[in-house]
Simulated scan of single mutants.
Amino acid sequence: MKRIITFAIGILFIVLSAVAGGQRVLFIGDSITDGNWGNSCGTAKPSSQRTLWDMNHIYGSGYMYLCATYYQGNYPEKEYEFLNRGISGNTLEDLEKRWEEDVIDMKPDVLSVLVGTNDIHFYLQSDKKKPFDFAAWEKRYRSLLDRSLQANPNLKIVLGAPFVANTGNMRKSADFAERDSLVRRCAEITERIAKDYKAVYLPFNKMFDEILKTIPTSKDTYWIWDGIHPTPAGHKRMADLWIECVKL
């Protein structure tokens, strides 16, 4: 009888382990992360309104997809679970509004955040009566990470630097210099936060600076087609950097 009970417990453990799967890796951010995951059709649909069962479109297209395919394709025995929670047009404030549902409730083991470009974009579109509040932006960012660490003290955090480039239609923008300066300030803050939280920092901005400077192409849109969104080639380089630095 004891052998039967022991055997049954062993089988139950195996089944529960299989159900539990491996590490859960969650990406959150704006359109660069979004990539039309869950059949969003280019809209900013909330996660609850996206197709969560269609594995053909579950990750969308972009660096997040490439990271997931790398780990899931090469290490099936580890049963990594990836989640895309990027939503086009989102700012840090938008992430805050859905943090409980799209981050805390998902119980990730690894959290990858890329945000900042839209914060500056919408600020530049405003009347700009006051300077961009970097102190408030940093405080909000830290608060979100604190909430996640409170829910999971062992959470591995990955923070990506926001970036822009003077390519494509962005070349027609009269405020590119200001935009570039403000986005770089957000990147500096992100790097400081990453250091304080012992998080993995991904210098996407410096990566693209180097690529655009050292790899000449016939079209300036080869890596970032509109000054904000990477092409497939750009997303591949982002994924390579993520994989190299994060090391799941």
Rank of each mutant, 00 (worst) to 15 (best):
S173C: 00
F13K: 06
K128Y: 08
L159E: 04
S61E: 13
N90T: 09
L114A: 03
R98Q: 13
A151I: 06
N152K: 10
A165P: 01
A68G: 07
Y63T: 00
N154L: 09
W242L: 04
L241W: 06
K2F: 06
N205Y: 13
L159D: 03
A136R: 14
G42L: 06
D196E: 15
R85I: 11
L182A: 03
S143L: 12
P153T: 05
L149G: 12
G22C: 08
S61Y: 09
E81F: 09
T33A: 06
S218Q: 09
S126F: 08
D54V: 03
R237H: 12
K78T: 10
P162S: 02
L12S: 12
S31T: 03
L26P: 08
L111D: 12
N118G: 13
T221I: 01
K247Q: 15
L26Y: 07
T190H: 02
I5K: 13
T231P: 01
P216I: 03
Q150F: 03
G160F: 03
R237A: 11
K213C: 09
I5D: 12
Y63C: 00
M170H: 01
L95H: 07
D240Q: 04
C245I: 03
I58S: 07
L114C: 06
K236C: 00
K139T: 14
K107R: 15
L114I: 09
G21C: 11
N152W: 06
R179P: 02
M55F: 10
Y141K: 10
A187Y: 04
Q150K: 13
R171C: 00
F163Y: 10
D180P: 02
L145Y: 07
D220V: 00
Y141T: 12
N166A: 00
G29T: 05
G10F: 13
K156I: 06
I193R: 05
H229I: 02
H121A: 13
D175W: 00
S88T: 09
R184P: 05
G42R: 04
